[in-house]
Design a protein around this nucleic acid. Sequence first.
DNA 1: ACACCAAATTAGACGAATCTAACCCAAAAG
DNA 2: CTTTTGGGTTAGATTCGTCTAATTTGGTGT
Lengths: 230, 230
Amino acid sequence: MLSAKMEDYLKAIYRLERDGDPPIAPSTIAEMLDVTAPTVTSMVEKLADRGLVEREKYKGVRTTPEGETVALEIIRHHRLLETFLTEQLGYDWAEVHEEAEVLEHHISEEFESRVAAVLDEPEFDPHGDPIPSDSLDPIDDESATALSEHSEGGQLEVARVRDRDPDELTYLSDAGITPGTVLTVEEVAPIGMVTVQLESGSSVSLPDHIADAIQVRAPDTQGEDGVSQA
Amino acid sequence: MLSAKMEDYLKAIYRLERDGDPPIAPSTIAEMLDVTAPTVTSMVEKLADRGLVEREKYKGVRTTPEGETVALEIIRHHRLLETFLTEQLGYDWAEVHEEAEVLEHHISEEFESRVAAVLDEPEFDPHGDPIPSDSLDPIDDESATALSEHSEGGQLEVARVRDRDPDELTYLSDAGITPGTVLTVEEVAPIGMVTVQLESGSSVSLPDHIADAIQVRAPDTQGEDGVSQA
DNA sequence: ACACCAAATTAGACGAATCTAACCCAAAAG
DNA sequence: CTTTTGGGTTAGATTCGTCTAATTTGGTGT
């Protein structure tokens, strides 16, 4: 059986592969998980022994298909839990990450499938992140672009908010910005700030690091059904 | 912070105190947790250092008030989870114990209070066990007696089923015996078996170890409201 | 080519939770 | 009042995940 720690490493490596390119350097993993480099070396050896990652000494690691499946399983748990906590237990989207981060390692397959059923097999979590399917096929991220890459004009719909800071998330939802929100870029200030206008007419200014985290796409012109995020 | 293991030991010691009398012998704890005696000795030392149990060398341990509070907290988590899994996720009462046994150590106080709220502050879990209150006051078990102590005649209501074996629990619920069931002792056979008759008229025979686990009391003559188990 | 440097690995230690083997109480039995 | 003996404790080892300190590696820059 895999320990919660091993699952954490696999999830981290998988995420890093989605952004930068494999192989993933130990130092990167160390920073993400807030451990020292030797700890990563020994853990990575263990994962390699189990066939969950491929290791090139002094280079880094990449997940094997089996390792990727494990990562997807944990990510599915995490995102289902976030959705569940929000929809069934009344959590705010700012609070769900921490709780899901712990529970994702401890729920059974039974729990997973019952939660998925109760939620009617959701495809996106409260932050707009896609939930891996029960079959754990690799998810194709990104048909969306960062808000920070857009210039003035044109309607955009918030697809995904890749930020987990509770204060920032609370600020955004209070300002009316969550997945599904339709907005227009009003001004791109040369001081690292973007101002957007919401459908309500209100303007919201956001520093670059937040605008980087907000992913947008062309607005959904069909009827709102909450599942049409693909 | 307490580890999940320390919580397990405290819960076990607390449970044993509720049955037999303190101090609780290491061997008893070892058997309940399926570990060896030396393991118990070292764990008990650690708990004593933390002020969670009082230890009399070569005698055994008893929980301190702080230790008892920790045990009650975990038991509250466990029973709330069992109730939640049953009522909200559609689990059968035979399945909930295992899942709750794991999750009880990992849910936050936030989770606990939200689940309690969603369930409308339940006082009993699906097996009829009382759920410690949010204030963690010691619960007064037992106003009920074992079915095995009753002889023929007289209506009895099932208050509590102190059995966690999934197969046995499934058998009982299939037979129509769950907390709230009203029955009459039909025959006490001298071969270690009791036969009861349900309100439906059907008879069910039960071996002694099951009859020991079923706790009964005088039937609730008031209207059924599902909370009148006290 | 050679030296340098940042990053990775190896070496050795530690705390938690567990085990087996060896030893020691203390309460019951003479 | 001694002896027996079951159960408890001590000693020492193991695994997991982590650390710090020392060493090695491989790519960079001159």
